[in-house]
Computed example of a mutant assay.
Amino acid sequence: MEELLAGGNTTEGVVRAGRTVRRPRDHRSTFASEVLRALNEAGFVWAPAYLGIDEEGRDTFSYIPGATTDHPSQRDERCYAAIGGILCELHDFSRGIPLASGAECLVHGDPGPFNVVMSAGMPVALIDWDSVHPGDPMEDVGYAGWTWCIYATGNVPVADQARRLRLLADGYDPQMGADALIEAVFRCQDAIIRIEGANAVDERLSDQRRHHARAAVEWAGSCRNVLSTNLEVFAEALQRDRR
Rank of each mutant, 00 (worst) to 15 (best):
A100L: 01
G197P: 01
A159K: 03
I86E: 05
E203T: 13
A49G: 03
A159H: 08
D202I: 09
S29C: 07
G66P: 00
T153A: 14
E12G: 08
T20W: 02
D190I: 15
E139R: 00
G112E: 10
L39A: 02
C88K: 15
P48L: 13
T10E: 14
P113L: 09
H212M: 13
S33M: 02
G145M: 03
I53C: 10
V107I: 03
L106V: 14
D202Y: 12
A49N: 06
A42M: 11
L99K: 02
A38R: 15
V185Q: 03
N115L: 07
E56Q: 15
W46S: 03
M176G: 06
R209G: 05
R16S: 00
I127S: 05
R164E: 05
M1K: 11
C223M: 07
D54N: 02
D26A: 07
D59T: 09
A49F: 01
A38G: 10
G145P: 12
A103T: 00
L39D: 01
D128R: 11
R243D: 05
D179Q: 15
A178I: 13
L106C: 11
H91D: 11
G135L: 05
E55Q: 13
P72Y: 00
D76I: 06
F61A: 11
F93H: 09
A47V: 06
P174W: 14
L39I: 00
G112H: 09
A220T: 11
D59Y: 05
Y172G: 09
A184T: 02
A47L: 06
R22G: 05
L51Q: 08
D26E: 03
R243Y: 14
H91W: 02
L168N: 00
G13I: 01
Y172P: 03
D179V: 15
A38Q: 12
H71T: 04
V15T: 00
P72C: 08
L165E: 03
T30Y: 13
A184I: 05
E55L: 15
